[in-house]
Each structure stands twice: as structure tokens, then as C-alpha cells.
Simulated scan of single mutants.
Amino acid sequence: MEFQDYYKTLGVQSDASSDEIKKAYRRLARKYHPDVSEQADAEQRFKQVAEAYEVLKDPEKRKLYDQLGENWQAGQDFQPPPGYESYTGGAGGRAGAGAGPGANADFSDFFEHLFGGGFRGGFGGGRTRKGRDQTARLTIDLQDAYDGATRTVELTDPATGQPRTLRVKIPAGVTNGQQIRLKGQGETPPGGGSRGDLLIEVHLRAHRQFHLRGRDIHLDLPVSPWEAALGSQVEVPTLAGPVDLRIPANSQTGQRLRLRGRGLPGEPRGDQYVEVKITNPPAEDEQAKAAFESLSAQFDFNPRAALSRN
């Protein structure tokens, strides 16, 4: 493979500053950009400029590149120096081949041999490539979101094909769609290295009586006509257990009452909203029908009086 003189490609000295390198790259990138340049080799020159800048803009990559020495000439057949094999996994092994689909696809073999297999900071150095983040979906009950819980997640690492089972701690107050990040539990990069992170998206199962909106919990509360008319104290379920709630006299269907701080934990903590639903007893026998007839006779009341006649 041919040695690439990145300093010559950008037209700067080997002791050029970061600003000088950036200015040279911008000037040449504008000059050779395929969309504006009419030179026949513009695309190839543009790729060479991009490759050179990719190395020289990064202090660690530039340091590694400089350790190759100053005696190499552009286009010269490159022979790896002593120690090169120890950090690439073999001079002839095309370390860059495992860098992932399309990674550095426009860069030269020289770049791939030197950096493509997961750049490490120096010969025999220790900073390896990090794997990609992995995502997983976890469905839990609303009660779990309120109390917090520990659940297991089954995963397969795409790089190794190995199945894994992880125990995940669900914090109290997690909301629907919220992501939990587990550092170092994602994919393993091809060729080895540190794992990426695991992002677990939490979804809440529908509850048979509670409805969640943000951190607030909503509940439809059936009450009898006399409880609504006269006022009463009734027991109301919450995720923390039942509580007593005072129903004001002359309450109507749709009226909302608030139980402060009875929603999901968090900052701020949610509330629980109770919506009154007046429910009539069934008139299934003569005695019940007579009671409703007596009630009708006692009131001159038309519940539809406010409706428009137009």
C-alpha cells in the first residue's frame, strides 16, 4: 500500500497549527468540491483532502501518524514500523475491515491499516473503539412506574450473536416512552473494544381504571345521585392505597376533584384527578320504580332546559 503524506496533501508544514490545518482544508475543500470544480480529478483530490484532514485535525491520530517518521514520501510503498502489528492485530490483517458497514469507505488502504480497526492512542496504546448503542423496549405496569421495580430484558448482541439477560432497575416515577440509559451494556464493536450503551424505552400497560397523562393520574369515580346531591365522603383508590375524598354537595357529572401529590413521583410530583360520574341505581322492580316516580313528583326539574331550541 502507498504511504500518504497528509501534510503535503494539505500543503502545510509538519509543525502547522490546528488553525493552519483547518484553513488549508477549507480552502482545498472549496477548490476541489465535485459540485463546483471542473477539474477531471476533483472528486479524487477532494477525498484525499478529506482523509488528510481527518487525521491531522485529531491530536491523537496526528501524534500516531507523526510517529511513523519523516522519511516517507507520498506514493512510496509503506512498510509498518516496529510495534505496528501490536496495535492493529497484524500488519497484513486489514484492521479497518471490521470498522462497520461503510465506515471510512472513501479513505485509502493506508488510512484503513492505520486507523480503521479502532484507533488506539499510540503504538500499543489503550483507547479502543466503542461499540454502537443498542435499543430495547420494556413494557411495565403502571404500579411498577409508581413504586419502581426490577425487571429482566433479553438481548442479542448483533456483533457476537450471543444472547444476554440483563436485570434492569426501573426508577419510581418513570413515564411512558422515557428512556433509561445503561452505560457499557450496548453492542460490542467488531474486532473488540468497549461496549456501547443500552437505551431501554419504557412503555406502560393500560390500566383498567387509572389513566396517565404526563405524571398526573385520572380516575372516573361513580357516585350515586344522593351522594352527589347531598355531599358525602367516599373511598377512592390510588396507586398508594385507598384514601377518603369529600364529594361536595350539588356535584355534577364531569366535575373534577384533585388529590394533590397522588400522581407519579418526580419533579414536580403528579396529582390524581377524580372526575365525578353520577350513576343511577337500576329500576328493576316495582319498589324501585315507585321511588323514582316519587322523586320525579318532588322536583320541577328539566335537565335539558339549557339546550338551545334552534
Rank of each mutant, 00 (worst) to 15 (best):
K169T: 08
E187M: 09
G148I: 01
A172F: 12
E201A: 02
G184S: 08
T160Q: 05
G214V: 11
E187V: 09
A145D: 02
I140L: 01
T150G: 04
P163S: 03
A159S: 15
G186A: 10
Q179R: 15
N176A: 09
R208Q: 14
R129G: 06
R137W: 00
K183C: 00
G193F: 04
Q209Y: 14
P189I: 04
H211D: 12
L155Q: 07
R215H: 07
H207E: 11
Q134E: 10
G131Y: 10
R213A: 13
R127F: 15
R181F: 08
R151L: 08
T152Q: 09
T175R: 14
D157I: 12
V202C: 03
L182F: 07
R132P: 00
L212T: 07
R167T: 13
E154P: 00
G126K: 13
L204F: 00
G125S: 09
L155D: 06
P171M: 06
D197P: 08
P158D: 13
T128A: 15
D197R: 05
G161N: 11
A136H: 10
G161L: 09
K130Y: 05
D216W: 14
N176D: 15
G186Q: 08
Q143L: 14
V202E: 05
L155M: 10
H211L: 12
P189H: 02
G131H: 12
K169L: 06
G214C: 07
R137T: 05
R129Q: 06
R213W: 04
L138I: 03
R181Y: 08
P190C: 00
L142T: 02
D147H: 08
H211W: 07
H211V: 15
G126W: 12
D147G: 00
L212R: 12
R205Y: 13
R208Y: 13
T160A: 06
G177S: 05
A159W: 06
Q162T: 13
Q185H: 15
R208F: 14
G148E: 04
Y146N: 07
Q162R: 14
R213D: 15
R167W: 07
G191K: 01
L199R: 12
T175N: 10
T160N: 09
P163D: 03
H203W: 09
Q178A: 14
E187P: 05
T175I: 13
T135Y: 10
L142E: 03
L204R: 00
A145I: 00
R137E: 03
D197N: 07
A149I: 01
R127V: 15
P189T: 04
L142M: 03
Q185N: 12
T150F: 03
D157L: 11
R127Y: 15
D141F: 02
D133C: 04
L212K: 08
R181D: 07
G131E: 08
Y146H: 08
G161S: 10
Q162Y: 11
G193E: 03
T175Q: 15
T175Y: 06
L142C: 02
